[in-house]
Design a protein around this nucleic acid. Sequence first.
DNA 1: ATAACTGATACTATATTAATATCAGTTAAA
DNA 2: TTTAACTGATATTAATATAGTATCAGTTAT
Lengths: 145, 145
Amino acid sequence: MKVLTKKTDYAIRALLTLAANSGRYVSAKTISEGQDIPYQFLRGLLQELIRLELIVSKEGSQGGVMISRNPDEISVKQLIEGFQGKVQVSECMFRRQICANRAKCVLRHEIMRIEQVVNAEFEKITIGSLLRNLDAIQGHIQPAV
Amino acid sequence: MKVLTKKTDYAIRALLTLAANSGRYVSAKTISEGQDIPYQFLRGLLQELIRLELIVSKEGSQGGVMISRNPDEISVKQLIEGFQGKVQVSECMFRRQICANRAKCVLRHEIMRIEQVVNAEFEKITIGSLLRNLDAIQGHIQPAV
DNA sequence: ATAACTGATACTATATTAATATCAGTTAAA
DNA sequence: TTTAACTGATATTAATATAGTATCAGTTAT
Ligand code: FES
Ligand code: FES
């Protein structure tokens, strides 16, 4: 049981590369090769990131994508929601009117609490914090090119 | 993004019925109808619960399945692990030796912490606790037949 | 004997995720 | 002014996981 799909994982890694190269346009090809993400898959994903307004693009030769937000304001939670939808533990555990009074259902509350904890934790993790951690370890994410 | 699959959800509900009928054999048909779980799907699932040693069965007429553990000792965590595998936030976020020193990787630790929180929460929720909550609400889960 | 059951297993359908492919249009620079 | 390096947009396929169905053999209470 995995919580992050490959797409979200790829998005995080692409954004890390972009955060390490802010102010510069980096091509999909460069990111693809640097992070070992399938090229066309990455391209689609980058277009989604553009729609999410986390990056901007420049067409043509020497073009590419560039991060357009403060990396500290891009949380893993946002990315999960953008690519996988809200964290949802389950639908109503007891369907068909079993819990007539959904609003007061203790179970639901219990389970929604877990969702909140997970969300809160993923909110704390940002592209910025990840990048700093990586830098602290060994300065991995090299400026591309 | 859902955390519990239908199978796990069904298993929880089947076990609640069985917990409310402990000491008695309840047929798959009765559970299926009572909880609105597809019959054959439920049958397979019950066989898995038998292998997990959470229930026992009796063949033949008047047969069925019966819970064989203290409901307080059956946690949702166990069920998730039995049906969906361990909670795993992602594989190593940075593949191919990027983090040369996996053991000390801050990211991994961060992410593993979330996994632990989730697991700890699901461990607290047991068939017993769920059943008591339901009873407290309105005594839903009627003894079957 | 028969109806009500489980054991075991094979199969199909559906949905989600992952990956590829194609072609049109933009831009920098030789 | 042509060309190579790019993105935009979209269609298609492949792989995998989840959900649901079907069948037949064997067991047991009545
Ligand atoms: S779990 Fe759905 S209302 Fe209680
Ligand atoms: S995330 Fe894999 S070792 Fe750091």
